Computed example of a mutant assay.
Amino acid sequence: MEIAKNAALVVVDVQKGFDEAGFWGPRNNPGADGNIAALINTWQAAGRPVVFVRHDSPKPQSPLRPGQEGNGFKDYVEQRRGKGTGRELLVTKTVNSAFYGTPGLDAWLRAEGISQVVVAGIQTNMCVETTARMGGNLGYDVVVAYDATYTFDLAGPFGWRLGAEEVARASAVSLHGGGFARVVLTEEIVGAAG
């Protein structure tokens, strides 16, 4: 695997509100936060650009809505913001894709001459997957750090219900198998980027 010298790390929605288990339900991958932190550290040490994405939910019951503590980044992310020598961007959004946020992610990446993005964060099958799919559609070389993401159990149609690990795997298969992104592990990315 090759990681471009100017590849952007897109850290999606790593916010305190996702720690509210009573709202979201059971999650998978308890090691995700450590892997997200490792990716941020690697990017900042190399002077590569980092994009921090925050979901400002318009839903009144959401722990991610503005003005609530849950809207803020988790402490380990907030402590790392502004610490690197590379470019940094904060994108806020109200929908799943980081490409539909403010300021415009696509315009910023193109202005910076960036063609490769590495995506990590929360939730695997929601905002991470939607951002990765759209990035692929826009022509970016998208890499998803699978074990630097997590999600929650999910109910669907016909009374179907999937556990968080099943949901995450289905998302990874869809992204990778569908050609939207390469889905790999954090260790492989860190090894290529270091």
Rank of each mutant, 00 (worst) to 15 (best):
M1F: 09
I3T: 02
A4Q: 15
A4W: 09
K5N: 13
N6D: 15
V12W: 02
V12Y: 03
D13C: 08
D13N: 13
V14R: 01
F18K: 09
D19M: 14
W24R: 15
G25D: 12
N28F: 06
A32V: 04
D33C: 06
A38T: 10
T42G: 01
Q44E: 11
A46F: 00
P49Q: 09
P49A: 05
F52L: 13
P58S: 15
P58W: 15
K59H: 06
S62P: 04
S62K: 14
S62Y: 07
P63M: 15
L64G: 10
R65T: 11
R65Y: 02
Q68A: 14
E69G: 13
G70Q: 15
G72E: 15
G72L: 13
D75Q: 14
Y76C: 06
V77A: 03
E78N: 00
E78G: 01
R80H: 03
R81D: 07
R81F: 04
G82Y: 06
T85G: 01
R87M: 10
V91G: 03
T92S: 13
K93E: 11
K93I: 11
T94A: 06
V95E: 10
V95L: 07
F99Q: 12
F99V: 08
Y100I: 06
P103A: 02
G104V: 11
L105S: 04
A111F: 03
E112T: 08
S115T: 15
Q116Y: 07
Q116E: 12
V118T: 15
V119N: 08
A120D: 03
Q123A: 11
E129Y: 09
E129A: 15
A132M: 08
L138A: 00
Y140N: 09
V144M: 05
A145D: 13
Y146N: 08
D147A: 06
D147V: 00
F152P: 00
D153C: 07
D153W: 06
P157Q: 14
G159L: 12
R161S: 04
L162M: 10
E165Q: 15
E165V: 05
E166N: 01
A170H: 12
S171Y: 07
L175V: 02
H176K: 04
G178S: 10
G179R: 11
A181D: 03
V183T: 02
V183C: 08
V183Q: 05
E187T: 00
E187W: 00
E187S: 11
E188K: 03
V190G: 00
G191R: 11
G194H: 08
